[in-house]
């Protein structure tokens, strides 16, 4: 069994070679700024990124994003550790609803700002409508190719 924390720890080593020599220096005045999608999310996935107020090029140690369906972060709390020294996370699989996200790090005592992300998937009728249109065109195409093929097999040189 591979534990999540081990997986993440390994990744730090693997993907951060270029940053390996730079070590995070904690600073007293440091605080984190979290940014997310501006508009409503229609597909259930989005990316967030974190910046540090002190030095943008410095890595942020053990960066974790917390997401919750309530403002006080008490309901359905989920945590997403960042990969290596990356300050950007691609999050996925969110159902309809409003989510509150914030970032924290080992180096910084305070949480980042809280952002609000609204997820609203496309209405099902719209999705199924496109599905049906696609299905009809596709069926027409397949039937056309098969019939043409059979016909050309039956009378090879000319049709």
């Amino acid at each position: 069994m591979v534990k999540p924390s081990i997986g993440a720890g390994r990744m730090i080593k693997m993907l951060s070679l270029c940053f390996l020599l730079t070590l995070a220096a904690p600073s007293a005045a440091q605080s984190l700024q979290l940014n997310g999608p501006d508009s409503t999310v229609r597909e259930g996935y989005f990316t967030v990124n974190v910046s540090s107020t002190t030095d943008a090029s410095e890595p942020i140690a053990s960066l974790v994003i917390e997401a919750s369906s309530s403002k006080d972060f008490k309901q359905n709390l989920q945590t997403f550790p960042a990969l290596g020294d990356f300050k950007k996370l691609s999050l996925t699989g969110f159902s309809d609803g409003t989510y509150y996200l914030r970032a924290r790090s080992e180096d910084v005592s305070e949480y980042s700002n809280v952002i609000q992300v609204r997820v609203q998937h496309y209405p099902l009728w719209q999705a199924l409508g496109l599905f049906v249109v696609g299905f009809l065109i596709f069926t027409a195409l397949v039937v056309t190719i098969i019939r043409f093929h059979q016909k050309s097999e039956a009378e090879p040189a000319d049709d």
Binding site: V2, S5, A8, R10, L15, L83, K88, L89, T92, G93
Partner: peptide, 24 residues
């Protein structure tokens, strides 16, 4: 990926990242 706690900076990195994380 979610179970392994892997959330890459961009989604197109997910395949190689997970494989490398699990397999060393």
């Amino acid at each position: 990926a979610p179970q392994l706690g892997i959330f890459p900076p961009s989604a197109d990195m997910i395949g190689p990242t997970v494989a490398a994380a699990v397999l060393g």
